[in-house]
Design a protein around this nucleic acid. Sequence first.
DNA 1: AAACTCGAAATTATAGATAATTTTCGTTCG
DNA 2: CGAACGAAAATTATCTATAATTTCGAGTTT
Lengths: 220, 220
Amino acid sequence: MTTRNTRAAQIAQTLADRIVSGQLAPGARLRQDHVAEEFGASHVPVREAFRRLEAQGLAISEPRRGVRVASFDLSEVREVAEMRAALEALALRNSAQHLTKAILDAAEEATREGETAKDVRSWEDANRRFHKLILDPCGMPRLLAAIDDLHMASARFLFTAWRSGWEPGTDQDHRAILAALRKSETDEAATILSRHVRRIGRKPIRSASGGTRDAFAIIG
Amino acid sequence: MTTRNTRAAQIAQTLADRIVSGQLAPGARLRQDHVAEEFGASHVPVREAFRRLEAQGLAISEPRRGVRVASFDLSEVREVAEMRAALEALALRNSAQHLTKAILDAAEEATREGETAKDVRSWEDANRRFHKLILDPCGMPRLLAAIDDLHMASARFLFTAWRSGWEPGTDQDHRAILAALRKSETDEAATILSRHVRRIGRKPIRSASGGTRDAFAIIG
DNA sequence: AAACTCGAAATTATAGATAATTTTCGTTCG
DNA sequence: CGAACGAAAATTATCTATAATTTCGAGTTT
């Protein structure tokens, strides 16, 4: 199997998945020799992977002190929500004129899948697919890459908060966005999308010390 | 001042400066052994620096084929302008309530310096200072980092287009933004800022083959 | 003459080794 | 008993060496 990617990219991808899924907790140390050994690689590609994770905001590196999984708090959840709102609205405005009926149908199907998802992971997958479908046609690669990074952060917030317990509901926002797009009411669709992405859910979490605190995540 | 940063960070910084200033042309190859030799380093920190430049959009890496300075065209200039407009407007809305008279005075001073700048480099420096002054108080580090990267891209577009020949003018937009902020008319200020950042200038450039084509850059 | 093949040179990717720094943990001193 | 110190261990950052891949050109074939 000749992988087309570099070793560093593979390692970065796997570690990113673990961080997003919550398998690697915020604050956890990433020790280069341990990671290298696990992947059967030397530490050089591992260090390159770390630099990538750092740029994506998933890890934090302090010189001579190693790399840790980035921590986050409510203010960063809010920040990512606001950035997503601003950038996704922009993308949608540029994407709208290129949307076809087939794309909108596929987005509706993704919405249905999200509504019937039985766990948070499959809901997130369907939700991301919805957003990607209606935004990709904007043809702005740099913008789409930035949105992708923000979605990854969103997913991390979500998986950390909703480790278990997920009840699906009808996604009125998605349907309203699609209805507006079908009527070519771009501004309306962008406005709903912007509001939709800024909705932050709260869930009580049992902390290690026995008490309960609240966890927050973007639920759009 | 010995920056206690890593070698990789120093190399990335220096290369980024060269790319932004146009000293390294779009498409130019970055050969790790040559760079390593120049900086008196091995190829390991050089490779880490490359990953950083890649994440910032300043370089493009193709596995086994090396790293090149990223190319860009009018559509990317437009894209960066739109992204800056969206994100800087967001930042300003969150920054407005924290702005003090001292900050606004400093921003006005930066505007004056930009108006009297004798070359494009010092104009860009003053312009960036203006934007940074009024946006930094928003206290959203991830947003500010994203804006920083976009400013770097903007500067690159500008320096590539306006390698020479620069005539200063009064910056009415900056003054209008400051006036609105002084009156606490945040929405008005954000609207002007958004329009301001999307202004794209055109300049005829003598190409190598003797003909002239147009170069474009964000002039806000 | 154009296209193709093969091989050498250049370059990138990975591995192994070394030096420098931080962390850890036991011991001593207040 | 707790804080502070210091050697040992672990970890990071860097360098040198080796392996793998691509590029480019000379020579051959159609």
